[in-house]
Simulated scan of single mutants.
Amino acid sequence: MTKIRKIEIRNFRGIRELDSGINCLIGPGDTGKSTVLDAIDLRLGARRNIGIADSDFNKLDVEHPISVTLTLGNLDDELLSLDAYGIFHRSITPTSGVIEDEPRRGLETVLSLNLCIQSDLEPVWTLRSDRATAQGVERGLSWRDRQRLSPTRIGALAEHTFPQG
């Protein structure tokens, strides 16, 4: 199963800047846990349109774009396909979380997925790679892969998601 190895959030709701490996979200109420989960859902959710408003920008500052980058590891064969995503493959050092733009032997191969929303409120989903940018190559995940990676959130209304009986 694909895993989030690193999350980077900029200018989203109450989060001005967050760079973190992610394992578990713990904390008192109103500290940003749901905002982090919403950011993950915005980036990985399999939907063609998302509802974003000026109020989703940190301190209503629409001059600085919302950016959510998820670096995914433990990739399956489809995401490791050189034909589909080879130019976007990167590597991560597990102990430090440092991402290198080239995949390297002995390091985990990862993909970095970005969602950027400017003041026009139009979401742009792309894969990140310095090599691809230098070659003028841009693309996102295929719709099929977006659907496969789309998260499910279980919360207070879990009984509606998983009815008993």
Results as ranks from 00 to 15, higher is better:
G97M: 02
S91W: 02
P123A: 06
S112Y: 01
D38W: 00
G86T: 06
L107H: 12
A39W: 04
L25K: 11
N114S: 15
T31Q: 15
R144I: 09
E108K: 01
P65S: 12
L113K: 00
R144F: 14
L141Q: 06
C116L: 14
G45K: 09
G51R: 10
T95Y: 01
R148N: 06
A134S: 13
S129R: 07
W143A: 14
I99D: 00
T133H: 08
I66V: 13
T126N: 15
R153N: 01
D61Y: 00
E159V: 11
R148D: 02
G21S: 10
Q147R: 06
R139V: 11
T109S: 11
I87M: 09
D101I: 04
V62H: 04
L82T: 11
F162W: 07
V62S: 13
R104F: 09
V36Y: 12
T71L: 02
L75K: 01
D30R: 15
G165L: 03
P163T: 10
H64I: 12
I22P: 00
Y85S: 00
P163M: 03
I117S: 11
L75V: 01
K33S: 09
S81A: 09
I7D: 07
N23H: 08
R104M: 07
A39G: 10
F12M: 07
K33G: 09
G165T: 10
R131Y: 13
G86H: 06
W125H: 15
G29D: 09
E108W: 02
W143M: 09
E17F: 03
N23S: 14
N11R: 05
Q147Y: 12
G97A: 02
C24H: 09
H64A: 09
I40W: 09
G29I: 12
D54N: 14
N11M: 05
Q118T: 06
A132H: 07
L18H: 03
R153K: 13
I117V: 15
S119R: 15
G140P: 11
L75F: 07
I52P: 03
I15L: 09
V110W: 08
P65Y: 12
M1P: 01
D130G: 08
H64G: 00
R13A: 10
S96I: 01
N74I: 01
T152H: 04
N49T: 14
G21Q: 08
L42A: 09
A134H: 10
S67L: 10
R144Q: 11
Q164K: 11
P28S: 15
E8W: 00
T133P: 00
T152R: 10
I4F: 05
E17A: 10
I154M: 05
Q164G: 02
G97S: 06
N11Y: 03
L115S: 05
L107Q: 12
I9A: 06
W125Y: 13
